[in-house]
Design a protein around this nucleic acid. Sequence first.
DNA 1: ATTTTATATGAGTGTGTACTCATATGTCAA
DNA 2: TTGACATATGAGTACACACTCATATAAAAT
Lengths: 102, 102
Amino acid sequence: MHDHKHDKLVDIQETVKLFKIFSDYTRLRIIELLYSGEKCVQDIADSLETSQSAISHQLKLLRDMNVVSARKDGKQVIYNLQDNHIKEIFLIGYSHATECKI
Amino acid sequence: MHDHKHDKLVDIQETVKLFKIFSDYTRLRIIELLYSGEKCVQDIADSLETSQSAISHQLKLLRDMNVVSARKDGKQVIYNLQDNHIKEIFLIGYSHATECKI
DNA sequence: ATTTTATATGAGTGTGTACTCATATGTCAA
DNA sequence: TTGACATATGAGTACACACTCATATAAAAT
């Protein structure tokens, strides 16, 4: 027998986690940047004019949340968006925000 | 002449604001609760087993962000979701989160 | 082997924010 | 008018978290 009310609250917590991914300026810019294709850490840092350390910290979070994948290429580490769910949700939020100017 | 790069960053900031609305457990439960129809403050607080004060504070934020509308009915204040954009984004995030268990 | 380059990460700091508590405001009932 | 109820709100607190700085790790170049 399941506790459906509890299940629902767990689902809400998962949804909160998902939305939290997108609710930071640096993280969202990383996602937007990777939208156009894979990039190495330093390129991301340069593009966003943010320190390598700050970017690495955020990339770790994004890795832990399975939002991005990483692969080594010599000294560099190349990051990419993991799945299309992420792209889809980003795009919907972005469209709404730009259309409506909340 | 427009600074398109700057415009884009502003749009990203707006998107962050939008996603922040959904990235708190109490706020998301309020939104989910109002999904099924308007409710007064005390009913929301009771349903979510959260203090009236905490709910009122969050409702103020949601009002300021034009996520919910409020109307007085005697001593009570009845809250409702403002527009369908909110419903749509919540639903998409919720589906993704429950399907994928990120 | 040593140095240089690319990335990761722990510790510490500052800021934002969700809550509690106390109290103000507003509305109805008696 | 006074009291009870419903909601709002300011102040204070505790915690989360995004950053910096210093340093570790790892691979390439010399």
